[in-house]
Simulated scan of single mutants.
Amino acid sequence: MCPHAHRHSIFCLVPPYVLDKIAQNGTPKQRAAALRTKSLDNTFRALRLATQAARFAPARSAVATAVGMLGKRRTIYNASNTQNLPGTPVRAEGQGATGDVAVDEAYEGLGATFDFFAEVFDRNSIDDSGMALDATVHFGDGYNNAFWNSVQMVFGDGDGEIFKRFTIALDVIGHELSHGVTEDESQLQYFNQSGALNESLSDVFGSLIKQFVRKETAEQADWLIGAGLLADGIRGVALRSMKAPGTAFDDELLGKDPQPSHMKNFVHTFEDNGGVHINSGIPNHAFYQVATRIGGHAWEKAGRIWYDALRDPRVRPNTGFRRYARITDDVAGRLYGVNSTERQAVRDGWKAVGIDL
């Protein structure tokens, strides 16, 4: 697939509305860190580096594909609390643990994500052509975020008061790298419903990667994104809940989780790129509904339906929830039969969030 025109410079994990709440409610130190983080995020979003558009192009060559067949190619860099990217290489593919927990968590998380896409979907890395996986840890001073910038993963250490290190949650790593998969397979605009769908797809695959590593069934999974990321004393369990959107946190500093789980509560806003991190709760909950209705390991059937739908040529730049739902319905019928329980689960799952096919 050719590089896409609608390429975005950064996909951050922590939504801007959370940073806004911290900037309003935090201590002077916390407010300063939140504003600094948001300023960095906005700067990265404004950048349109020439290397972004070219990043996927070399991987499409026969040479790159041949190299990619060798398997994982991970490199972890240390920014040493500066904003220099990528930083100093500290662990390469095949090297042993360093003892730096952030370095080693990033290394293992990149590997788990590669293995998931390879074993479940027969996908050769993020671009399906053996793309090397690079990540930088210890980025910035108390940087409260993690992001994918179309070139690599970047992890902040968190401030220790609100957020712990951003390598701590496997689904965070999977979420961000999955933005690269979506970026490679579709041209979903990062705005309004198509942007919320983009965010939801990363939550879906991030959660599935965690479930795959833990060998959990849909019923056993916690369906949380970023569990363990919130620091001690923060009233919350994660950044988002796919099982119960709107319940992940309720804290005087962070505010209350604003995600809706049903179209009747869809949030109309121009903030957060039209609510991409907020309204993603609706397709997130639809996937949870589908996966638990089908049962078993969610990556085997529900995940396959969502992945094949992402790759469907009918996914357009402005694809919204209903169009994507109809594509998943068609895919389920093709994979498992028009009268299958899997297809009915897809229809019932979308209906549960207010989307009739």
Rank of each mutant, 00 (worst) to 15 (best):
L224G: 08
A102Y: 08
V267A: 10
L239I: 15
L49Y: 10
G109I: 01
T217I: 04
L224D: 05
L70F: 12
D272C: 01
A291Y: 07
L35N: 11
N78K: 08
G255L: 05
D115P: 00
L13F: 14
H8F: 11
Y288W: 09
D330Y: 06
A66E: 08
Q211Y: 12
L177Q: 11
A332R: 07
S280M: 13
E185M: 12
H262S: 04
E342I: 00
T182Q: 14
L188P: 02
L177Y: 09
H175G: 04
V103L: 09
H175N: 11
R55E: 11
A54E: 13
A325F: 08
F44G: 01
I209G: 11
D159E: 06
Q344E: 15
I126K: 09
Q220S: 12
K264Q: 14
A309W: 03
I22F: 00
S125C: 02
K38H: 14
G274F: 03
D134E: 10
P258M: 07
G233W: 04
E300W: 04
S186V: 05
W148H: 05
D203E: 12
F287R: 02
A352P: 01
A345K: 02
K72P: 13
F166Q: 04
R74I: 14
R311K: 14
Y107Q: 06
M69L: 12
D104C: 00
P89A: 09
D222V: 02
S129W: 13
G296W: 12
E300Y: 10
T113D: 05
G130F: 00
H175E: 06
A248L: 05
Y307A: 06
W299D: 01
F270M: 13
E176D: 06
M1R: 13
T167K: 03
G111T: 06
S200D: 08
D329T: 13
F155S: 01
R293K: 15
G156S: 04
Q52I: 00
D348K: 12
P258N: 10
V204K: 03
H175L: 00
S125G: 07
I234W: 06
L201T: 02
D308S: 12
D41Y: 11
A196I: 00
F212W: 15
Y190D: 05
F287A: 00
V338C: 07
I76Y: 00
L47C: 07
D157G: 15
G87H: 03
Q24F: 09
Q52Y: 03
P15C: 05
T247P: 04
G140V: 02
A302K: 06
A298F: 03
M131V: 08
D203W: 04
S261M: 01
T182L: 12
Y190R: 07
A135I: 03
R48K: 09
T292E: 06
N124R: 15
N144G: 10
S340D: 02
G354R: 03
G156T: 08
